[in-house]
Amino acid sequence: MTAVSMPATKTRAAAPAERRGRRVRIGRIAAWAVLWLFVLITLFPFYWMLRTSLSNNRMLFSDPSSWLPVAPTLGGYERVFGLATLQEAQAQGGSGASIRFWLYLRNSVIVAAVITVGQVFFSAMAAYAFARLRWPGRDKVFFLFLTALMVPPIFIHLPNFELMKNLGLLNTFAGIVLPYLFMTPFAVFFLRQFFLNVSREVEEAAMIDGAGYPRIFFRLILPMSAAPIATLAILTYINSWNEYFWPLLVTDPTNDDVRVLTVALGLFKSQTPQGSPDWAGLMAATLVAALPVLLLFAAFGKRIVNSIQFSGLK
């Protein structure tokens, strides 16, 4: 900004400077235009989701490029939440098949919440041990944790599936949650970076007062790191909410007791009749599935942005 206006204030030949000034201004306008174009490209699909979900599926074909919902109705949402009768659903182009959307929604909430609490808590404990305590093999174990990031998840999923099968945990919450409950290398790494920066003096003062490590951790470290821990919790919740592959593997297509929303959406699409899918209903469902993330983003957007920038730096 200042850099760009600099040459104009330098007293060189006046005329070329002015010409350059104008060129710079045009350049800046063009640059802004490009940036806003990308913002538009980013936001448009979200709008289109909303527009389609509020349309009457039967009437979509009549005006495919209408900017506003076609024959506006809440029918799509009613079908998703099972509020529409069979006749109503079929009249608007739905299949009328009952989907237990509330159940999938509840399952997703449970899975994401349990994983978030467990993973963040246990990872914080581990991060504290890596950042603050001295023990033999510490750096080697930490290195081992980090190399785990290099192994493609599908490779680990195969034996983990075998394990869950042998333990009889297929189609259970435990089967979905367990592999993510205790740690992920990223979570440990992320928190360790913050714990390294907590002042040692406070800790030593507490120790002189006779506080043991657990007390220091729970009463001092955790409260002092509330901000990064909250950030990690938000990221973990979003990631668990969005996870598709592992819940797909450990749940049976014929048993939907613990099916999560992402898996249900994948099936929802493949189960719709060929030729005339219920686009309005599908978009209503995807929007509801995206809603918690959108809400989290509305509340904590800046924090999420900063944490990703931070992970880019380290």
Binding site: T42, N242, A290, V305
Partner: peptide, 11 residues
């Protein structure tokens, strides 16, 4: 600009 990254692949 980050928003799409936060939404599930499936969505």
């Amino acid at each position: 600009l980050l928003l799409p990254y936060l939404v599930a692949n499936v969505v």
